[in-house]
Amino acid sequence: MKIFTCIKQVPGISDVKIDPKTNTLIREGIPSIMNPMDKNAIELALSIKEERGAEIIAISMGPPQAENVLLEALSMGADKAYLLTDRAFAGADTLATSHALALGIKKILKDSDSNEKYMVICGTQAIDGDTAQVGPELAEDLDIPQITYVQKFELKGDDKVIAERAFRSEEIVVIETKLPVLISVLKEINTPRFPSMLGIVNAYKKKKVVFLDAEALKAEKAYIGLTGSKTEVFKIFIPERKGEHVKLTGTIEEMVKTLCQNLKEDKIF
């Protein structure tokens, strides 16, 4: 079986700070990291591999520097890694991104020339865009079933898939389907392993990231990158932060009333 894991390189946004004077992002020293939920995806792939054997293929679309996150995936234990990189992919929205990824997966499947079963595992969403759209759009492009928001997963027999999907705050639905399938995982599903030192040494010594450009994928320009995107960014702005410091006045009852009113407006309730 082949397990594709989709990886995204993202800015480590927990380190992003706003400069209060200029109200702009302070970008200095923000590292690029592997999207955290993608690590859960790799961990799941590794546990499936350990249980029943599989070839894990990490795939990403991004600038050449995204090679680093794929090397991290290889260090964790992925067997192969592909980076879809080309200026023609730039500016892609989720629709165009999922198309490029689908072309990549189809090409790898075709080139491997085997009829093995496959599945795709994605992190549910990326911390920079938070759209959670690429997974389902990729499943649609590949024409395979999807199970999103998965927090528990099991493969039974040859191709039976059973997944627990968190769909409401209080309920989980257990869904059954068959391979091939795309699942998107939540961080609750497992604790991703850190790559061991040996894993890192071997990733850099024995494995390599294969770069594929638009031509290698035979991608049609109308469906990739900026041109293939239906949505576009109209404007970007920094949300206004609460700046004022108000001391409430009046009786205690009046003060708590004003407070609750304000909290309601602030969407706390």
Binding site: R193, F194, S196, M197, L198, V201, N202, K205
Partner: peptide, 28 residues
């Protein structure tokens, strides 16, 4: 337990002897 899994107890020993293979990379 985790340090062992990470191979921090075999850092500078080649893989064939159970290590991490950094015997030729003292900087690492």
């Amino acid at each position: 337990k985790e340090m062992k899994r990470m191979k921090y107890f075999g850092t500078c020993i080649p893989e064939e002897y159970g290590g991490a293979g950094l015997h030729d990379d003292t900087i690492s």
